[in-house]
Each structure stands twice: as C-alpha cells, then as structure tokens.
Design a protein around this nucleic acid. Structure first.
Lengths: 132, 132
DNA sequence: CTTGACCTTCCAGCGCGCTGGAAGCCTTAC
DNA sequence: GTAAGGCTTCCAGCGCGCTGGAAGGTCAAG
C-alpha cells in the first residue's frame, strides 16, 4: 500500500510516517519501480504500537529501543516493563510536584482576595506573586 | 553594578540576564562609557519577581505582560489574578490527565505480572502495551 | 607591556515531535 | 497533451527557555 493509504488507515500523517522511518521506528519499506514506498499491513500494527506506547508516556527514543529489540528477534517485554515502572515512578514524582504547585496557586489566589491592589509595591511588580 | 555581580547576587546567569533584557523582561540598563551595562538594585527585585512568577507556572511571555503593565504605571494585580486562576484551572486538568495516565500505567504493570513474555505476539511488538 | 578577567554583540543549537514548503518525478483521467 | 493528485527528497522552522561559542573591546594588577 502507498504511504497515503497507510496514512488514512492509521490516522498518522504521511509526514510523520516518513519521519518515523527516518528515526528508525519503522523499517524501510520496499519501493515500487518508480521509488514509491510500498508498505504492508504489518506497518499498521507497528504504527498502532507506536501510538499506544506514546499514549502511556514513552518517548520515541524509548519506543525505538523496544522495536529494535523485537527486530533483533528478542522479546522486549522485560525491557518494556522496566520502562513502564520507571515512567510510573517519574509520573508519581511529577504529580506530587504539580499538586504542590496547585496548592501554592490556590493559596496565592486566596491571599489575593485579602489584598488590596492599592497596597502593591511597584518595585515588587505585584505582591500577589512572591514569598508569603 | 556590572552584569557579573548582578548574576552572582541574583543567581541568574549573565546569559539569561541579557536574554531577559532582549525579550523585554528587564528594562535596558544605562551603559558605562565603554558600553558595559550598569544595573541598579531594582533589577534584583525584577529578577526575583521573574523567578517567583516562573515558579508558580507563568511563562516568560505572561511575565512580560505583567511587567509591561507595571512599567506603564498600571497596577497589574487584576491581570495577575486572572493568570493565576487560569493557570490553576489548567493545572487541575493537567493533574487529572496525569492521574489517569498513572492509573493506566499501574494497570499495565499489574497486568504484566500475569502475562508470559513467551505469549507475546511479535507482530504487536509487545503485548504489555496496547488495548487491554 | 602583558596577562587575565571581565565585558560586548551576534549567530547557532539544544530537546522533542513533528510540520511546512520547495522542487521535481509518476500515474491516471480526460 | 495536460491537469490533478499522488509520490520523492531535502532543508527549515515551530515553541520554550535558555546555553554555547566566536570574535573582539575594556580594565586593573603586576
């Protein structure tokens, strides 16, 4: 199938498909005599995997590592599980950070309701932001 | 004071200070006869504000808008409060998304413990990732 | 007079995941 | 034959907040 059909069937743009091939996420497909890419349906599976892996927070670099293992004939599951656990731990930390920030924002907004703009010191730009 | 002293007193690099001046976060300081920037201590206040505003999630573009109001002689508090509320609402949505992703990751890791890598279909790359 | 530490400007690149556009070839329909 | 719509490659840029480096001027100490 040509790249345009692959794009419409997968929902991934032709630009992105070529980009994925460039960075090694997709194997270089065979070409027609005129040089057109001729993808088979396995590329649909591959694209579905890439999108699913992105959706759980893996980077294209990490995904490339996974598909490379598979292409070498290995079973990438152990590596994938490591990545998922690592991402989960990072996400935990990230969520904790964002919740702290959210608490801070809520505190600042609440404080803003008790402050009078007229009291704002021009040198400090705005007293709503900054140390309590 | 020269830019190097400002940098060490503020903890912001000379590169970044010049960059902030370029993008309009800092007013252009007077120059010595040889062209050196000559900042006064108000720049320390300004830099402290920029860092505090960044810390609560405002972008440099938003911060520029705030300091521009102040430089025009207005009190930016109302605008700042709008920004803080907007950022808070966005953060709420973002945290909700990340928590959903975290739930998904935890579910995938738990499922991985029940799956046998030997069952993994090579065409799907890795069965740990993808629809349940 | 030289050394070294400062300062200046300007241009370029990082990471990440694409996206846009130019210039040109191929295929199909009319 | 020609027009439309595929396809090809290659180069460049987005947003964001810096950061690095080159090439050169300035200043104080020895």
């Amino acid at each position: 199938m040509q790249i345009g059909e692959l794009a419409s069937r997968s929902g991934v743009s032709t630009k992105t498909i070529r980009y994925y091939e460039d960075i090694g996420l997709l194997p270089p497909p065979p070409r027609s005599p005129s040089g057109y890419r001729d993808h088979d349906t396995s590329t649909l599976d591959r694209l579905a995997f890439v999108r699913a892996a992105q959706a759980v927070g893996l980077s294209l670099g990490e995904i490339r590592g996974i598909v490379a293992l598979r292409d070498e004939g290995q079973t990438p599951c152990g590596h994938v599980l490591d990545l998922l656990r690592t991402r989960s731990a990072e996400l935990d930390r990230r969520i904790t950070e964002l919740r702290a920030l959210q608490g801070e924002l809520i505190r600042l907004v609440a404080r803003a309701e008790r402050l009078d703009p007229a009291d704002c010191d021009p040198a400090r730009i705005c007293h709503l932001v900054g140390p309590v």
